[in-house]
Design a protein around this nucleic acid. Sequence first.
DNA 1: GATATGGCACTGACTGGTCAGTGCCGTTTC
DNA 2: GAAACGGCACTGACCAGTCAGTGCCATATC
Lengths: 205, 205
Amino acid sequence: MKRDRRAQIMHAAEKLFTSRQYHEISLDDIIHEAGVGKGTVYRYFKGKDDLFFQTATSGFEELQSLIATGVPGHLPFTEQLAITCRHISGFLTRRRQLSRMMQSEDARMHWLKGELRAAWHARRHELVEAIAEILRKGVEEGQLRRDVPPEALATYLFGVLRARTSGCDGPVDEALPVECVVDLFIHGAAESGLVRVIPETGEGR
Amino acid sequence: MKRDRRAQIMHAAEKLFTSRQYHEISLDDIIHEAGVGKGTVYRYFKGKDDLFFQTATSGFEELQSLIATGVPGHLPFTEQLAITCRHISGFLTRRRQLSRMMQSEDARMHWLKGELRAAWHARRHELVEAIAEILRKGVEEGQLRRDVPPEALATYLFGVLRARTSGCDGPVDEALPVECVVDLFIHGAAESGLVRVIPETGEGR
DNA sequence: GATATGGCACTGACTGGTCAGTGCCGTTTC
DNA sequence: GAAACGGCACTGACCAGTCAGTGCCATATC
């Protein structure tokens, strides 16, 4: 019966913070959802802000561990990239609500208070860097263009993957499958159109 | 003396809502900034929510009129696309704060109340459709691939342009200039790499 | 084994403050 | 003179954060 209170609270907070706006959720809502006393929240979190921030941030960790562990190093570059993109896209779809919350905060990041802002920025940077690391390999192997820094390419790719999930309700793949997005990305970034990600599908140009 | 109260209020609201979070801004802040009585706000807006929503929405109109009026029809497709992208990018940079607010709301759109949600969705759709209209021309002229619907391409392009401005503070062009983004986009979307947007710059592949 | 003790996790009623929205009145604007 | 307005006081609701108190358990003491 010794349940992890912290996780309990975070879970409730995520459920609520991803379903309505920050100012529409009261701490009482959260403690009710978590089945926990109010004071307990203050044992584990500095306050409502902190709880919200940690909830939003948790997505970064999840996404990053997904990127870090999931790709076998021996595969050819394009395969690695495709797998990574599918991982990211999978996260954005599976955890759609949390992703949206993160995306929303990402836009607001710039007027966060000093410390939190730095923390958010760091998380974001780590993520982009993780993606950039994969792309860097592509550049070194001559598969991706050299005139764009891998970090910029990573931001671009992340934006592209995000664009799929924003502004649609139903299954994301309906309008624009991941494979298609990757294909779109690669043939903008690849040297002279030699690289194809999904050769067997009929959706190539 | 002062004529357009509505514009006055909207202007103040935009200044404040784009500098801090919704729940950090009080109506008193806004009327003080606008130099207007509280009752006057309620003459022109239903309430704080309405004022916020209309502020966020105003960006769509601005952006759309930019797209609609700015592109001479007689130019070749790639030129038109490049100009449109520069327009959009210009808006995203010049009105960075408002864009971020819109982007943040865009992510949250899905848990807006029924009526507002429909309104937001409609605005967004119009915008994407406006971009899609331009891309459609490219498809018909054989410059863009046919296997991706223009609407999806438009969402993709918009996401790409947005990605440049998110997560950076300084001048956006530093990391990834518009021309480069357009180039990146085109060579993913163009038929067999024939199209070049900015032939004179040295940043092409 | 029984009882006392200290400390820890937890609770929820309470507080102090905030704020959206309203109503009124004297003033400005046209 | 009527409509629009600024300013102000008010209120009813809401809510983040606090803190005194409860229960539990491991260890100490007899």
